[in-house]
């Protein structure tokens, strides 16, 4: 317990101390939120209706999918994990503690957005704050799982950026954060359903904001839970202590299995 608390405290402080992580955990999502509130309020007043879920999902993606993988790759490449292994730090802690602290930072950013969006931009506040809080936790868990998986299977930080952007950029356009998914062409809507952010948006809108959604919100929750568990399971399975040690339990391509719940979702809905 003492080891967990010490490790957690260190990782949490790192999320604030490290300039890159501070940027991705707070400065970038909150700065983008303010910019979107000022600009989109005038350009597209409809955006204000979904502003809180959209910016919450944005903050979660920024911290987890963009911020989480690189420290994992660097830890492996720089021999940090070798040192951890020798000193008895389990792989579960190496993956789950940074993921948890990152999720923590993302949830704080989500609440800053949810608490300020109404007074600053007249965005409708969540009608169910408990659901909002629980969905923040769930979305952060699912996206942190994906972030951890990207960190585990990427050979270096350049590959990490590639994989992260492959999730992040389409999420901006196709998950309902900027434009409602109902306005997208059917093909793009299907592509959007391969992304966790789409399900997170629907869950937030349906359960926290009390808005109507294309996808059953509880089904979206189920897919997010399955996606998170699968991503973390695969990250643990494919975890490697050491880039010089070529033996690992499975081929990195197995990571693609993490998309399975979203593929099922795309087929069903």
């Amino acid at each position: 317990m003492r080891a967990f608390a010490t490790h957690f405290a260190f990782e949490f402080r790192t999320g604030l101390r490290d300039k890159n992580l501070l940027l991705l955990n707070y400065l970038f999502p909150l700065g983008f939120y303010v910019m979107m509130g000022v600009m989109m309020g005038q350009i597209n007043p409809l955006f204000i209706q979904t502003m809180i879920p959209a910016m919450a999902v944005f903050a979660i993606l920024s911290a987890t999918v963009l911020g989480l993988p690189n420290p994992l790759v660097e830890g492996r490449e720089n021999g940090v994990f070798r040192s951890f292994k020798i000193n008895g730090v389990p792989s579960l802690s190496i993956l789950s503690i940074p993921a948890t602290t990152t999720a923590f930072h993302a949830i704080i950013a989500c609440f800053v957005i949810a608490l300020t969006a109404k007074p600053l931009f007249s965005a409708p506040a969540p009608v169910n704050w408990l659901a909002f809080a629980l969905l923040c936790v769930l979305a952060a868990f699912t996206c942190a799982g994906l972030g951890a998986l990207i960190g585990v299977v990427s050979a270096n930080t350049r590959v990490t950026i590639l994989w992260s952007q492959l999730i992040y950029l389409p999420s901006m356009m196709l998950s309902g954060m900027m434009v409602p998914t109902s306005m997208l062409p059917v093909a793009l809507r299907k592509v959007g359903m391969l992304l966790p952010s789409t399900y997170a948006m629907h869950a937030f809108q349906g359960l926290a904001q009390g808005q109507t959604t294309d996808i059953q919100p509880w089904a979206a929750v189920g897919i997010l839970v399955a996606g998170g568990i699968l991503a973390f399971g695969l990250a643990l399975y494919l975890f490697s202590w050491d880039s010089r040690n070529t033996t690992r339990r499975g081929h990195p391509a197995l990571a693609m299995l993490a998309l399975l719940p979203y593929i099922v979702g795309a087929v069903i809905f």
Binding site: R2, T14, V80, S83
Partner: peptide, 28 residues
């Protein structure tokens, strides 16, 4: 065993005191 590795083996942002606290915690 105690090991002093050839390569760094510590996160760059970890302070000296944190490193000692961290490793001692894992070794109980």
């Amino acid at each position: 065993i105690g090991v002093q590795l050839q390569t760094s083996g510590l996160p760059g942002s970890m302070t000296v005191r944190e490193a000692m606290r961290f490793f001692c915690a894992y070794h109980r």
